[in-house]
Design a protein around this nucleic acid. Structure first.
Lengths: 245, 245
DNA sequence: ATGCATTTGTTGCATTATCGCACAACTCTG
DNA sequence: CAGAGTTGTGCGATAATGCAACAAATGCAT
């Protein structure tokens, strides 16, 4: 069913950077023929997934139905949310739980504190796995060959001056994550942002998600961050293992 | 492009109630031919949107890419989040912002307090508009004919003993919302849950969203809830009007 | 403004793939 | 092991695909 696959590619062409697309722009992003792209967009508009002002198309909230069926059907967010809230209150920092989707992490639950955070994150938000503490924890749980495959699938574009951006450097870091049992990331995703993450395992010991807290680099040095926040994270990680099937 | 429309219907067949579907089940929910449903599901699986264990299909986090492009491209969540956080801290209760999509409201931002809430809500969650304070505010902003049309499009299934479930009763309530400028809902969504909502307007005065707070009915009587929480809500509503285009 | 070059939106058409129906193979369950 | 339910597979009718051509709009330097 080529038509379906093509249409989904068209929907994914709408991102935060390109929220408004003309037919030609969408055609170029997707690599589809202009005629086909046009037919896709008109079909999407007809069914309410897109709005068309005669020149540009934009996606409507209707497309949220496609994705949130998944989030809503996942037991994970509902289960971890109370732990996250309590942990967030206890340590006074924002906490998040994410899962791995290909080479990206997807936030599925989050407890925000009222600190100013440069990046606005919410359930459904995505970041590259290789440079985030949440991602490193989950990549470290994969077989090495699979991790390398994922890292190769997308270019490791450095996001700050600190970002590890070679396969070797990341794999070495993953080995460290495996031995020490947690991931600490110092301003690799965003200047001034530090984070510490632990894996979240189900009852069978399989890593199904990751849990972290992030805070401004100015508030504490990295060593102190780990000392302060790792134990509570470990505690919640242990507790979650008992309640996740 | 029938294939695309059919595939999207298949994706929407996966809900929180029916997260795992066989081919026949999906065919029955969508009303499509089994052969077509099968082709859709196989195509979705081929592209990573579905997982197939030989018997059942489940959607993968990949489908979140479809919807969250929309959320990420919306300026609204990012803009309102700081106000929401501050308001939530100030009044000590959870606050939310939602938009209207058809006859449903869609949460786009939320600041949770660590109180136990019976319903787990997060950005992307949906509830019927007719029985929620957020929905009433936005329905009240529509022309009456359009509101009636929306109310007719879905059956008004009462969710509690308090739920208004006739068109007339809801329309009367909408008139009240218009005159008093806010919506107060007393345990119509969920037993023991009260909420108060204000509209969120852009600079041109067009209602683009709604803002509310919800709390346990046991904590305060309705009159006191309104007295306590309406003024801060009104304040934020006014302030948002200045920053939204 | 004017003319020219380029991009963009739209339409027609032969090729190719999909749709829905009917039938065969399979899998449970009593 | 029979019967209901479900899954997988050809086949003609139907619809989508990609290419190309054309028209309209846009950008740009004069």
């Amino acid at each position: 069913m080529g038509g379906l696959a093509k249409g989904l590619r068209v929907i994914e062409a709408f991102t935060a950077e390109t929220p408004r697309l003309s037919i030609s722009e969408a055609a170029e992003i997707t690599g589809l023929d202009r005629a086909t792209t046009r037919r896709c967009l008109l079909t999407l508009a007809e069914h309410g997934y897109c709005a068309y002002d005669g020149k540009f198309f934009t996606v409507t909230p209707r497309v949220l139905r496609l994705g949130t069926g998944c989030l809503a059907s996942m037991p994970l967010p509902r289960i971890v949310q109370p732990w996250l809230d309590q942990l967030s209150e206890q340590i006074g920092q924002s906490t998040s739980v994410a899962i791995l989707d290909g080479a990206e992490i997807v936030y599925v639950a989050r407890a925000a504190q009222r600190k100013v955070m440069s990046i606005a994150l919410m359930p459904g938000s995505r970041l590259p796995a290789y440079c985030t503490s949440l991602g490193r924890v989950m990549l470290a749980a994969l077989p090495e060959t699979q991790a390398i495959e994922l890292l190769n699938s997308h270019p490791l574009q450095p996001r700050t001056a600190h970002t590890l951006h070679t396969i070797d450097a990341v794999m070495t870091e993953l080995a460290l994550v495996r031995t020490q049992g947690y991931a600490a990331v110092d301003q690799e995703v965003e200047q001034g942002l530090r984070s510490v993450a632990m894996s979240v395992k189900n009852a069978r010991g399989v890593v199904v998600a990751a849990l972290n807290t992030g805070l401004a680099a100015s508030s504490e040095p990295m060593a102190s961050v780990i000392e302060t926040y790792l134990p509570p994270l470990q505690q919640v990680s242990r507790e979650l293992r008992g309640v996740l099937s």
